[in-house]
Design a protein around this nucleic acid. Structure first.
Lengths: 99, 99
DNA sequence: TTCGCTGATATCGCTTCGCGATAGCAAGGC
DNA sequence: GCCTTGCTATCGCGAAGCGATATCAGCGAA
């Protein structure tokens, strides 16, 4: 029961959607980006999350070949942006409530 | 995969710790308080959560009798307050990152 | 006093999620 | 061919979510 970790985990969805709105991200870079913000996340958490977000229609992806290596690039969909907006609202309320 | 719900869920811990810092809360009232803030949570989620938070030493509880009914009142421990402070810091970073 | 009623708490059962470890996979260098 | 390297995917087990259901203690009414 690591409360901070679990809170971070919920926030992960938000950060992924946020980041994939501006750029076409791929898993490994995303992992570094998150780690730089203090969110260390294992591949066993990140990839299933990406798949679930895609299944839910919040992300879309395509395979791209970069330097011969195949990477799966994700981008936030319109639906994903709506979810993000909703999360931002919840975040604002939350900040007010725990202040 | 309801992203908003899952984000709320992580936030739940924070709100519980926050609320139990100011007052000695009990499950049912807490449930109403959360619902009023848009966090509808079933007893099957809330009670196990309270137990886990107590097991982790973030909450302490005692049975009290009110109008003949026994209620379990929770209060945030010192350790719980530290966890809360840490979560607040994460929350602030998060707000900055998704802005 | 026995029978529900009510509000509070607890638990069950199934599903989903987290996540470390491990495997797969394609291109380049040897 | 066969390592190595860098991404991506999966496995397996433990933990958590949560609707439904059970338990529990006083209360009032018949």
């Amino acid at each position: 029961m690591d409360v901070v970790r679990e809170f971070r985990n919920g926030a992960l969805r938000l950060l992924v959607l946020r980041h994939a709105t501006d750029a076409e991200v791929h898993g490994a870079l995303l992992s570094e980006w998150l780690a730089a913000r203090g969110h260390r996340v294992s591949p066993g958490t990140l990839y299933p999350l990406l798949h679930r977000l895609q299944d839910a229609g919040l992300l879309k992806s395509r395979i791209e070949v970069v330097d011969g290596r195949r990477v799966r690039r994700y981008r936030t969909t319109k639906r994903g942006k709506r979810a993000l907006a909703e999360c931002r609202a919840v975040l604002a309320e939350l900040a007010a409530d725990v202040a």
